[in-house]
Amino acid sequence: MKLQRTNRLSAVALGALAACGALVLSACGSDNNSGGSGGENTKAASKIKCDGEGKLLASGSSAQKNAMDVWTQTYQSACGNTQLNYKPTGSGAGIQEFLQGKTAFAGSDSALKPDEVAQSKKVCKGGQGINLPMVGGPVAVTYNVSGVDDLVLNADVLGKIFDSKITKWNDPEIKKLNPDAKLPGTKIQAFHRSDESGTTDNFTKYLNTAAPAAWKHEPAKAWAGKGGQGADGSSGIATNVKQNDGAIGYVELSYATGNDLNTVKLDTGASAPVEATTDNASKAISEAKVVGKGKDLALDLNYKTKADGAYPIVLATYEVTCDKGNKKESLKATKSFLKYTASEDGQKALSDKGYAPIPDEIIGKVRTTVDSLS
């Protein structure tokens, strides 16, 4: 099914983006989507309580880039004394910069590992790094196969495709799931992230959990599958899938809609194949459990759900910061910005960009934790 792009950038916005680049988000919008309507942004901005000033530096997850674009645009319109710069360098790079003390917070699509928590205590004086789930959403499996605009796959077949065990689009296992499709004998070009990515971590957690016989590699931010072609960032995968007949890849839904890419429906064992939508992702995320200790709110996602309408390839993007020991010069601005992103208005702004707001029970805990940062 071809997803329709919403909220297209105007030609003026595209020109401005090309001119200024995408890294300094206080000045530029997303390469895929811009913020919401002026009226909505103005209304949301009027509720923001600004605090702090100067530069607020952050980096990490490219999965949340489009969310950060919207949030930054709204926040900056209210809080001109703070210059927010979020660099979508990928989860792995973002965590490393945070652990090196270069940023106030990091965006990561997977929670801190025990060794990273231990390292964070050197940066967070008297405290440690914690995970604050702020953005949810589906990881869409995108494809470009001539003559095919409705495709159903399951975890087992996806595992074999991305591990180079299924190499042609007319393979019997794909045909079995798509009896009415005219599948060509085109060679499959499977694209994966070349950089360390929380999106890869979540995608491979899904494969390893839902189809362990087909995907025997341990989940990780670094790609471990056999064969395939690497691409830098979600935008790199989206571009390569769009340009190559026979291609398949995995990206956050906003990159699929923003590039008018077809997405796979998943046969999860539910009564009908499940499409990658924010509503369907929300049904899966609602089954998540908080497994972090203390102020840490790391989640355990249910990748094996078979509930009707629940799309299981989901991720939760965390803002990683210190519970105690945040840098004095950026603490006030960090809390002010994260209070906005966790607010009702901040979460509401996500839906139009292909993201799923964090469930109420969990985001309520995030708000309480942000208030307590020191």
Rank of each mutant, 00 (worst) to 15 (best):
A16K: 14
R5E: 04
S59C: 05
F337D: 07
A16M: 13
K365R: 15
N7E: 01
D345K: 09
I161L: 07
A356Q: 02
A310V: 08
G236A: 03
G246A: 02
D345S: 12
P88W: 13
V157P: 01
D156S: 15
E319A: 15
G325L: 11
I161A: 04
P138F: 12
T334N: 02
V264W: 02
L56E: 06
A104R: 08
G129W: 08
Q243Y: 04
D171H: 06
P359T: 11
A19S: 11
A231S: 10
T209K: 15
E319R: 08
Y86V: 14
G80R: 14
K176N: 07
G246W: 07
K283M: 03
I363Y: 06
T82M: 07
D300S: 15
N131M: 09
Q73N: 14
N41W: 00
F337L: 14
E196H: 08
T209W: 02
K348F: 03
A247C: 02
A214V: 03
S372D: 14
S30I: 00
G346S: 10
C20F: 10
C124V: 13
G364H: 05
T199P: 01
L17C: 02
A272W: 00
T199W: 00
K160F: 00
K2L: 14
G147K: 01
T278R: 04
G236P: 00
P179D: 06
P359L: 09
A238C: 01
L253T: 06
G236N: 03
V320R: 00
S26Q: 03
K205W: 12
T278W: 04
A111Q: 14
A140L: 04
V135S: 00
K289M: 11
W169G: 01
G364M: 06
D163V: 12
S91P: 11
